[in-house]
């Protein structure tokens, strides 16, 4: 990985308070911690953290505790805190701060673990600032003067390489490299700088929402729509798959041919394999 020119491209990570998925205990948000890890790998101690929310949030120190194992051993983390109440709109605050800070690369998790957790904030920020946005990054491979090359997570463990123009906002997937542990010393030494002079506005859209404890989603049942009992019984008693082709009395070579033909028919063996077959 090419070390980026941090002076030309200051990196900012947006952090938020998280909840453990099982115990519900407050802590670092999983995706945000990965974003901070990615930022530390890119920019080292020059990574700047931003949080919009409660100034007394204890979890913020956990992110500052990740500033260890860097080139500059005496480095300490710095977090800009934009104070606001939970009912306020974070987009306006963050957009104003980001526009003033002059940074060109912002990393964030895909979705917050507290509050609305809709994952809309990076998109609203990018729209307001006129920046590019990419979701689901696994790795940032290279940063040039005006472009970033990264790998995006696809379903089924696949990856896609994208080139994104700066300034941009990149959200980080849970499949990104796991975050380093938070250490006590760096967490104590890190500075939290409360940014004054920004006025928060109340979020008008969420006024009429009703919050309620999450219900378990109902499992979908297999329903057979049929008038008579016979068909319903047959559908219930039927095997889920009707049984496939069974080929007996094959030599291994014939079996291999059948298997390869089947895999090609189902487009599982790639084109490259087919070409390689003709030119061994």
């Amino acid at each position: 990985m090419t070390p980026p020119d941090a002076a030309a491209c200051p990196v900012v990570a947006l952090v938020s308070s998280g909840r453990h998925p099982v115990s519900g205990r407050p802590g670092r948000a999983r995706e945000d911690a990965r974003a901070v890890e990615m930022g530390l790998t890119l920019a080292g101690a020059r990574l700047q953290l931003v949080h919009a929310g409660n100034a007394e949030e204890p979890v913020l120190r956990d992110y500052l505790g990740m500033y260890h194992g860097l080139d500059d051993a005496a480095a300490q983390g710095e977090l800009a805190l934009l104070p606001m109440t939970p009912a306020d709109d974070a987009v306006l605050l963050l957009a104003t701060w980001l526009a003033e800070s002059g940074c060109r690369l912002v990393l964030a998790g895909q979705r917050a673990e507290c509050g609305e957790g809709s994952g809309l904030l990076p998109y609203l920020l990018a729209e307001r600032l006129g920046w590019t946005i990419v979701s689901g990054a696994a790795t940032i491979e290279r940063i040039d003067a005006d472009r970033v090359t990264l790998l995006q997570v696809l379903p089924q463990g696949q990856r896609r390489r994208l080139e994104v123009s700066l300034p941009c906002l990149i959200t980080v997937d849970t499949l990104a490299p796991p975050p380093r542990q938070s250490a006590f010393g760096p967490a104590r030494r890190g500075r939290i700088q409360v940014v004054d002079g920004l006025t928060a506005e109340e979020d008008s859209a969420s006024g009429e929402w009703r919050w309620q404890p999450a219900r378990a989603r109902p499992k979908r049942l297999k329903i057979v729509k049929s008038g008579n009992a016979r068909d319903r019984f047959r559908a219930a008693a039927a095997r889920s798959s009707a049984g496939g082709q069974v080929l007996t009395d094959l030599t291994p070579e014939q079996a291999a041919d059948r298997l390869i033909a089947y895999l090609r028919e189902e487009k599982i063996l790639s084109e490259e394999k087919i070409l390689g077959d003709e030119m061994p």
Partner: peptide
């Protein structure tokens, strides 16, 4: 009815 963070659901228009 949509899932929010922290084991909450949001009901809205």
């Amino acid at each position: 009815l949509s899932r929010a963070g922290d084991r909450q659901d949001i009901q809205r228009e």
